[in-house]
Amino acid sequence: MQSAVDVLSWILLAAGGAFVFVGGLGALRLPDFYTRMHAASLTDGMGTILILVGIMLQAGWSLAAIKLIAILVCLLLTSPTASYALANAALLSGVEPGNSRAGKAEN
Protein backbone atom coordinates (compact mmCIF):
# COMPACT_ATOMS: atom_id res chain seq x y z
CA MET A 1 0.00 0.00 0.00
CA GLN A 2 2.69 2.43 1.06
CA SER A 3 4.81 1.63 -1.95
CA ALA A 4 1.83 2.18 -4.26
CA VAL A 5 1.36 5.65 -2.78
CA ASP A 6 5.10 6.24 -3.17
CA VAL A 7 5.07 5.22 -6.82
CA LEU A 8 2.03 7.40 -7.49
CA SER A 9 3.60 10.41 -5.80
CA TRP A 10 6.88 9.94 -7.70
CA ILE A 11 4.92 9.77 -10.96
CA LEU A 12 3.07 12.98 -10.06
CA LEU A 13 6.28 14.73 -9.07
CA ALA A 14 8.05 13.67 -12.25
CA ALA A 15 5.11 14.76 -14.41
CA GLY A 16 4.97 18.05 -12.54
CA GLY A 17 8.67 18.64 -13.06
CA ALA A 18 8.23 17.90 -16.77
CA PHE A 19 5.31 20.34 -17.05
CA VAL A 20 7.26 23.06 -15.26
CA PHE A 21 10.25 22.53 -17.51
CA VAL A 22 8.15 22.57 -20.69
CA GLY A 23 6.53 25.79 -19.50
CA GLY A 24 9.94 27.37 -19.01
CA LEU A 25 10.98 26.24 -22.46
CA GLY A 26 7.80 27.66 -23.99
CA ALA A 27 8.23 30.99 -22.23
CA LEU A 28 11.71 31.21 -23.67
CA ARG A 29 11.12 29.95 -27.22
CA LEU A 30 7.64 31.00 -28.36
CA PRO A 31 7.50 33.95 -30.77
CA ASP A 32 5.40 36.70 -29.18
CA PHE A 33 4.25 37.88 -25.78
CA TYR A 34 0.79 36.33 -25.64
CA THR A 35 1.95 32.89 -26.76
CA ARG A 36 4.75 33.00 -24.20
CA MET A 37 2.26 33.93 -21.54
CA HIS A 38 0.02 31.11 -22.65
CA ALA A 39 2.86 28.62 -22.19
CA ALA A 40 3.89 30.00 -18.82
CA SER A 41 0.51 30.35 -17.16
CA LEU A 42 -1.06 27.06 -18.26
CA THR A 43 1.90 24.88 -17.34
CA ASP A 44 2.21 26.82 -14.10
CA GLY A 45 -1.24 25.64 -13.09
CA MET A 46 -0.74 22.02 -14.10
CA GLY A 47 2.79 21.76 -12.71
CA THR A 48 1.68 23.31 -9.43
CA ILE A 49 -1.16 20.83 -9.00
CA LEU A 50 0.99 17.82 -9.87
CA ILE A 51 3.99 18.75 -7.73
CA LEU A 52 2.01 19.83 -4.67
CA VAL A 53 -0.29 16.78 -4.79
CA GLY A 54 2.81 14.61 -5.19
CA ILE A 55 4.37 16.13 -2.07
CA MET A 56 1.04 15.86 -0.26
CA LEU A 57 0.98 12.10 -0.83
CA GLN A 58 4.42 11.90 0.72
CA ALA A 59 3.42 14.06 3.68
CA GLY A 60 0.40 11.97 4.63
CA TRP A 61 -2.21 13.42 6.95
CA SER A 62 -0.34 16.05 8.90
CA LEU A 63 -0.13 19.79 9.41
CA ALA A 64 2.21 19.92 6.42
CA ALA A 65 -0.47 18.44 4.16
CA ILE A 66 -2.96 21.08 5.26
CA LYS A 67 -0.42 23.82 4.59
CA LEU A 68 0.22 22.29 1.17
CA ILE A 69 -3.51 22.35 0.43
CA ALA A 70 -3.59 26.01 1.48
CA ILE A 71 -0.62 26.76 -0.80
CA LEU A 72 -2.30 24.91 -3.68
CA VAL A 73 -5.60 26.76 -3.26
CA CYS A 74 -3.86 30.13 -2.98
CA LEU A 75 -1.69 29.50 -6.02
CA LEU A 76 -4.66 28.32 -8.08
CA LEU A 77 -6.44 31.54 -7.15
CA THR A 78 -3.59 34.01 -7.51
CA SER A 79 -1.63 32.67 -10.46
CA PRO A 80 -4.43 33.01 -13.06
CA THR A 81 -5.34 36.38 -11.55
CA ALA A 82 -1.80 37.57 -12.01
CA SER A 83 -1.84 36.27 -15.60
CA TYR A 84 -5.09 38.14 -16.24
CA ALA A 85 -3.67 41.34 -14.77
CA LEU A 86 -0.53 40.99 -16.85
CA ALA A 87 -2.39 40.34 -20.11
CA ASN A 88 -4.68 43.24 -19.34
CA ALA A 89 -1.79 45.57 -18.63
CA ALA A 90 -0.20 44.56 -21.94
CA LEU A 91 -3.42 45.03 -23.88
CA LEU A 92 -4.01 48.37 -22.18
CA SER A 93 -0.72 49.74 -23.42
CA GLY A 94 -1.28 48.57 -26.95
CA VAL A 95 0.47 45.23 -27.39
CA GLU A 96 -1.69 43.56 -30.03
CA PRO A 97 -2.14 39.78 -30.03
CA GLY A 98 -0.73 38.08 -33.09
CA ASN A 99 1.21 41.14 -34.11
CA SER A 100 4.93 41.03 -34.61
CA ARG A 101 5.09 44.58 -33.25
CA ALA A 102 4.56 43.06 -29.80
CA GLY A 103 8.15 42.09 -29.57
CA LYS A 104 9.46 45.52 -30.35
CA ALA A 105 7.26 47.63 -28.12
CA GLU A 106 9.77 48.39 -25.42
CA ASN A 107 8.05 50.93 -23.23
Partner: peptide
Protein backbone atom coordinates in the same frame (compact mmCIF):
# COMPACT_ATOMS: atom_id res chain seq x y z
CA UNK B 1 17.17 29.90 -15.18
CA UNK B 2 15.09 29.84 -18.39
CA UNK B 3 12.71 32.41 -16.93
CA UNK B 4 15.67 34.56 -15.97
CA UNK B 5 16.95 34.41 -19.55
CA UNK B 6 13.52 35.56 -20.72
CA UNK B 7 13.62 38.37 -18.16
CA UNK B 8 17.06 39.47 -19.34
CA UNK B 9 16.22 39.22 -23.06
CA UNK B 10 12.94 41.07 -22.76
CA UNK B 11 12.16 42.35 -25.33
CA UNK B 12 9.08 44.15 -23.97
CA UNK B 13 8.54 45.02 -20.32
CA UNK B 14 5.61 42.60 -20.26
CA UNK B 15 7.89 39.69 -21.10
CA UNK B 16 9.99 40.64 -18.12
CA UNK B 17 6.91 40.91 -15.96
CA UNK B 18 5.84 37.47 -17.19
CA UNK B 19 9.22 36.12 -16.18
CA UNK B 20 8.86 37.66 -12.71
CA UNK B 21 5.46 36.06 -12.39
CA UNK B 22 6.81 32.66 -13.45
CA UNK B 23 9.67 33.11 -11.04
CA UNK B 24 7.23 33.67 -8.19
CA UNK B 25 5.32 30.44 -8.82
CA UNK B 26 8.54 28.51 -9.33
CA UNK B 27 9.89 29.87 -6.05
CA UNK B 28 6.81 28.65 -4.19
CA UNK B 29 7.22 25.19 -5.73
Amino acid sequence: ALALVRALLGPSVYDRMLAVNMFGTKTVL
